[in-house]
């Protein structure tokens, strides 16, 4: 039965080719450190799912942001869990990306032919931090507000364009409704779009070039 359904689907989609290429491919013998990449991926998926769920109720305005986060955390069923997982997912993401990078450096896995994979990884690191920075403001509590005040003020010290950079980041001289709205847009639309592109590229390259083998002594 399942064979027949699979066959029917395969004739029309060619999914078996993809399945064989992605999942049934041969990989070198690897150790537990190689799971860090997929652990990061699962957190990415977690962030996407919980993030989408959060946007259902969250309203990015100065009047409502805090109230809606409060509503999510305290009034909705499992809201605390969704928000908690998104919150902790952000930290886990940074941690896992860092460890994953250390693993790659340790094994020299950024070398030929995986340079582009590495480069997209560095891009994903920056993206992760950008997610963290923009997302931190959204609950609009004291911690969020003042950390972002200081965080954006750091831009001001840039030589020549400091003032300008600060105003671009805040959307004005002060941290305001405009800032909140922009951070929300960036966090929810711009960064995820780039994230999907880069993750897609990263995974495609991992499949195409294969997982690097742990180098033995003298290699």
């Amino acid at each position: 039965m399942s064979d027949r359904v699979g066959g029917w689907l395969d004739e029309r989609t060619g999914w078996r080719l993809v399945w064989d290429g992605v999942f049934l491919r041969q990989v070198p013998k690897v150790n537990w450190a190689y799971t860090l990449g997929s652990a990061t991926l699962i957190v990415v998926v977690n962030q996407i799912i919980t993030g989408i769920l959060l946007t259902i109720y969250y309203v990015p305005s100065v009047q409502d942001a805090y109230a809606t986060v409060d509503f999510i955390s305290h009034d909705l069923t499992a809201g605390w869990l969704i928000r908690g997982m998104h919150h902790w997912g952000a930290s886990a993401m940074v941690l896992l990306v860092g460890l994953h990078m250390v693993r790659v450096i340790y094994h020299g896995a950024y070398k030929f032919p995986r340079e582009i994979t590495w480069l997209s990884g560095v891009g994903l690191l920056v993206l992760t931090l950008a997610f963290g920075f923009t997302g931190y403001l959204l609950p609009w509590d004291q911690k969020a507000y003042w950390a972002t005040v200081v965080g954006t003020r750091m831009l001001e010290v840039t030589p020549l364009i400091g003032d300008w950079a600060l105003r671009v980041a805040r959307g004005g001289d002060d941290l305001s409704a405009v800032t909140l709205s922009r951070f929300y847009g960036i966090h929810v639309w711009v960064l995820p779009a780039i994230l999907l592109l880069l993750v897609g590229l990263h995974l495609y390259l991992v499949v195409r070039n294969g997982i690097s083998a742990p180098p033995k002594k003298g290699e």
Binding site: I49, T50, L76, A78
Partner: peptide, 12 residues
Amino acid sequence: WAVPGVAYVLSP
């Protein structure tokens, strides 16, 4: 993911 997600969406 699904169970709390659905509960969360439906709870209101």
